[in-house]
Amino acid sequence: MPQESEIVTKRVLINLDRCIECGSCAAACYVSHANMPVVGFARSGFALLPLICRQCKAASCVETCPVEAMVRDENGVVRRLLLQCIGCGSCAKACPFGVLPAAPAGVPTGFRSTDRISGHQIAKCDLCEDRTTGDDGAVPRCVAACPTGALVFADERDTSAEAVGVLGGRTTGEDPFKRR
């Protein structure tokens, strides 16, 4: 179990009541990560909702990876080391939230490619560290792209954040026409 200080406290949170399934988050992630999708979608009934890494405190993907390609870095972000990943899929199977699929949003990652390097990858959210490290006001690209404010980059300790309450257990259920 990592020390408290090693865990990220700001996470991407989703307010399901604001998600219009436009795919802006997935598109932003895709074009910014060398066409390797990280943000995927799950279909719940007729709704199509984004799946974003929760940056778990006890990250099963890190525990399971046989080659230590999935690590928690110095900023506390769980990330995949590009050249170390052998594409075995252990992390994808271990993830209890299903956010590490080989084909997020139905788009295959390099996992099935025959390329010697990119053919061995599982896409993994890194919270856009190239933007967010050292800048408290910066947000990951999926959050910046969200047109409706459904995605927020919030500190879980900030109870005033709108989405933190939502994270508590609201679900879409089977019928999104009745969910709101």
Binding site: C22, S24, A27, A144, C146, P147
Partner: peptide
């Protein structure tokens, strides 16, 4: 995003958003 290759970049902070159509403009 490479030699003569471009991609859309987003405002650093939480702004008004940009839909997938805007995301494609840079490309």
């Amino acid at each position: 995003n490479g030699p003569d290759i471009w991609r859309t970049e987003y405002p650093l902070g939480e702004g008004d958003g940009l839909c997938p159509r805007g995301s494609v403009l840079g490309e």
